[in-house]
Simulated scan of single mutants.
Amino acid sequence: MKLSHYDEEGQAHMVDVGAKPPTRREARARAFVELSAEALTALPLNPKGNPLEVARFAGIQAAKQTAFLIPMCHPLQLSFVDVEAKIVAGGVEVETVAATVAGTGVEMEAMTAASVAALTVYDMTKALDKGIRIREVELVSKSGGKSGEWRREGR
């Protein structure tokens, strides 16, 4: 298997996607922020503001900045980004979606949004819980482009 971001000499490079036809592409990702029961109970009373709403905005902003953070990512004109952060048993689940019409996919944008939203929940709640863990940052599904549909099994 050949990795696309390396040339014949093993040097990292940006893939040329100029010849690829633009198609609608969408990716979904998730992350989980494990919090103590005490932190979950106190979450709505956070003096810094609503951590879930701040995380939502942070994730949207992060998706738009992905190419500045990940060296070989192409800057994409995103047509849609959504981030949902909700309290569930044991913590906060973050789910994201990113979409574009382009010659390359938006997996990195969706995963960056999920990661930064999770980090924002951590930042907003760290005074309540020193044992916070961010787990399972993962791509859930993608569509569009040459490789078509992909979905993580069990989702």
Rank of each mutant, 00 (worst) to 15 (best):
E109H: 01
V97H: 03
T120V: 14
G131C: 12
V88A: 09
S141R: 14
A58P: 03
M124V: 06
E38P: 03
T23D: 04
E109L: 05
H5M: 09
P22N: 12
L76K: 12
L3P: 00
A31H: 02
L128H: 01
K20W: 01
A42C: 05
K142A: 00
E107I: 05
T96A: 07
R155F: 08
E136K: 15
E109Y: 06
K86E: 14
F57D: 12
K2T: 04
I132H: 08
I60T: 02
E53T: 12
G90I: 09
A27I: 00
T112D: 01
F68S: 15
L119G: 07
D123I: 04
K130R: 15
A27Y: 09
I134L: 10
L40K: 12
T66C: 13
S143N: 08
V116E: 01
G90F: 02
P51S: 02
V121S: 11
P75C: 10
L35R: 02
A114F: 02
K126N: 07
E136F: 06
M124N: 10
G145M: 06
G131A: 14
A42Q: 14
A67W: 15
A19V: 08
L76W: 02
A55H: 09
G154P: 09
G10L: 05
A114L: 07
V54G: 08
V54T: 12
R25G: 07
M124P: 02
L139P: 03
D123V: 11
M14S: 10
L52R: 15
V54Q: 03
P75M: 08
D7S: 13
V140M: 12
I60C: 12
L45K: 13
A117C: 01
R25K: 14
E93S: 10
F32Q: 06
T125A: 09
R152Y: 04
G148E: 05
F68C: 14
D82E: 15
R28D: 01
G148V: 02
A55N: 05
M1D: 14
E9P: 08
I87C: 13
G90D: 09
A89D: 09
V137L: 13
V92L: 10
M1L: 14
V81C: 08
G148W: 04
L52T: 02
V106K: 07
K64Y: 04
F32R: 15
Q77L: 15
E38N: 03
L52F: 00
Q61T: 10
G103P: 00
H5N: 05
I134N: 05
K130D: 07
A58K: 00
D123T: 11
L76R: 00
T100I: 05
L3F: 14
R24Q: 10
S4C: 10
K86V: 02
C73Y: 03
L119R: 02
L35P: 01
L3Y: 13
G105Y: 00
A63L: 11
K64L: 09
A127F: 01
A29E: 03
G145L: 06
I132D: 03
T104P: 00
R133Q: 15
A102F: 05
R25S: 05
A117M: 11
